[in-house]
Computed example of a mutant assay.
Amino acid sequence: MNTYDTLLFKVDDHVATLTLNRPDSRNALNLQMCRDIVAACERAGADANIRVLLIKAAGKVFCAGADLKERQGMTTADMVARRVEGFTAYAAIEDLAIPVIAVVQGAAFGSGGEIAAACDFVLASTEAAFKYPEVGWRTVGATQRLPRIVGRRMAKELLYTGRMVDAAEAQSLGLANHVYAPDQLGAEADAMAAAIAQNNPLTVRLTKHSIDTGLETTRQGAMAVELLAIQENLRHSDWKGAIAKFGNDKDPKANQLETTETKHAA
């Protein structure tokens, strides 16, 4: 396990786990954590052995937001520079070519919500909660990722009011994909990451790229993005070998998939 000043980082069977590790400060995002997140994401992106990244947090809180104590005494220029560091950390997560899953066991407020939103999706505990208090702190934030997840009108409501969103509502809004009991969350997240890591890493990366890039362009442009991804995948993946396994009694997974597809096609 490699450690940073504010994070823990380990790799096991193609799955990396980045753990926010400032539990005494409710994992509040400070300048050093921003820089550690960037460094850890750069490491994950450069290691071909890593196929999935889980972002977890130590303690009962995922991330209580930005470290406001750190901001006391800052000048306007200092604040702008600090916000840029935060944006850089979120972008480092979002720009990873591999799947990134946030595992939110408790409060994800402000910057915590941004970290979760920068991931591909979120698995949450029933004790998780989301809140976007930026307007109440007389600042602007969470205006870009949040509306892309929950829609324009709901994003405005959540930002204008700064109200709390519990785990059940978070799931209904799309902030969380699945909600589990606290004692099951870690195991469920590990199992999902392990399952994703078993897939062809190139195919997974191309699928992520196609979705993320396609959503930012026209329908025709998105089709071109997917076609280019298909061509690259055909050149570099063992798609013929995967198809050849259909009907092979020695490959239960392939047989199950074939049976399912046949049933749907009937």
Results as ranks from 00 to 15, higher is better:
232 E>P: 10
195 A>Q: 14
34 C>M: 01
259 T>L: 11
113 G>D: 09
43 R>Q: 01
125 S>F: 12
170 A>W: 09
130 F>E: 04
138 R>K: 01
191 A>L: 13
82 R>V: 02
47 D>S: 05
9 F>W: 04
167 A>D: 09
220 Q>N: 05
248 N>W: 03
207 T>N: 14
133 P>T: 04
180 Y>P: 10
150 V>M: 12
88 T>L: 07
154 M>N: 07
19 T>R: 11
18 L>M: 12
156 K>I: 09
176 A>S: 13
113 G>K: 07
143 T>A: 05
226 E>N: 13
131 K>Q: 13
64 A>M: 06
46 A>T: 00
50 I>M: 11
117 A>P: 07
9 F>M: 02
236 H>K: 05
189 A>G: 07
224 A>E: 13
194 A>C: 08
208 K>Q: 15
182 P>D: 13
99 P>F: 08
250 K>R: 12
51 R>S: 04
172 S>Y: 15
94 E>D: 15
252 P>W: 04
30 N>R: 00
222 A>I: 06
56 K>A: 11
255 N>K: 03
35 R>N: 04
197 A>G: 09
250 K>Q: 15
107 A>F: 07
89 A>P: 01
52 V>E: 03
13 D>Y: 04
204 V>C: 09
253 K>T: 08
174 G>S: 15
58 A>W: 09
262 T>A: 15
97 A>R: 10
133 P>K: 05
52 V>T: 01
65 G>Q: 06
106 G>F: 11
87 F>G: 02
130 F>S: 06
67 D>M: 07
258 E>P: 03
264 H>R: 03
221 G>C: 04
175 L>G: 12
236 H>F: 13
